[in-house]
Design a protein around this nucleic acid. Structure first.
Lengths: 136, 136
DNA sequence: ATATAATCTACTATTCCGATGGGGTAATAG
DNA sequence: CTATTACCCCATCGGAATAGTAGATTATAT
């Protein structure tokens, strides 16, 4: 299951992508419009800023805004930042690989075989979707 | 992330599928071979029996065995029993559908759009894989 | 100067997972 | 009959992760 963090993060990105111009939007406005806990959203937007998706402006009239164009924001990238590994098992992950303690032979593990196939396909879909694809 | 319950369940099914003949295998034997907590595995196998995948035989020489042939065991079915919904969001699930409390309009929700695409694809893969496909 | 709004740290409450252990019942092989 | 093994229910427990909260600080527009 997708965490609320990821869900809220994508919703916020979508909200910003759907803005007319790219003037900063206050956290409170996004939170209200998308029904998200203000403080929780705060931490998510901060993470997205540190990850290079968003810019921020402090003070009156400040807020967050997209740094890149929606069509240049890859959803696999977003997913990895917010949710973590795309694979359902650490042993089937590229970016977050970890062996299973209970697995004697990875090459004959049926679970890994299946989850690797799922992973490859999910990755393909996420990589082929940009923020523009899902927001519009 | 896949729960250990699902992981262990699939490993147990695989173990049974790889048996020479279909004489019952004691829980303890599976647990030892696959490094799974005995009591935990017990509850998983019970669930798989109630779901029609396994048969059980009590008493000496008893244990669990596959009821159907591995090629007739669909991994999407197994996944739903052990893990639950295939979709990463309840609003993108067929069998476990639930609307999001925070979502005003499902049809324009970008997260749902993306997760539906992921779901459709994952389902396709799970449905096209049988226990025989991953065990051998 | 003042109000606004992001930043950052730290904290809390709740929930779930994986596992453990107890205890007893029912079926079956020898 | 006896040993074995599945069945079944329950209670607990630590640890991790989620989701959300509080409060103080910093930057900026007016």
């Amino acid at each position: 299951m997708l965490s609320k963090k990821t869900k809220y993060g994508i919703k916020a990105l979508t909200f910003l992508a759907r803005q007319e111009d790219q003037t900063p939007v206050a956290i409170a406005d996004i939170a209200k419009s998308e029904t998200i806990s203000l403080k929780f959203l705060e931490s998510i937007l901060l993470l997205l800023r540190h990850s290079g998706f968003l810019g921020a402006k402090k003070g009156k009239g400040g807020g967050y805004y997209l740094i890149k164009e929606p069509k240049d924001i890859n959803m696999a990238h977003v997913y990895r930042i917010l949710e973590g590994p795309i694979a359902l098992l650490p042993c089937a992950s590229h970016n977050f690989y970890e062996p299973c303690a209970d697995c004697s032979d990875e090459t004959t593990c049926a679970v890994r075989k299946l989850m690797t196939e799922v992973r490859d396909n999910t990755l393909l879909i996420l990589e082929n979707n940009t923020l523009a694809d899902i927001a519009f």
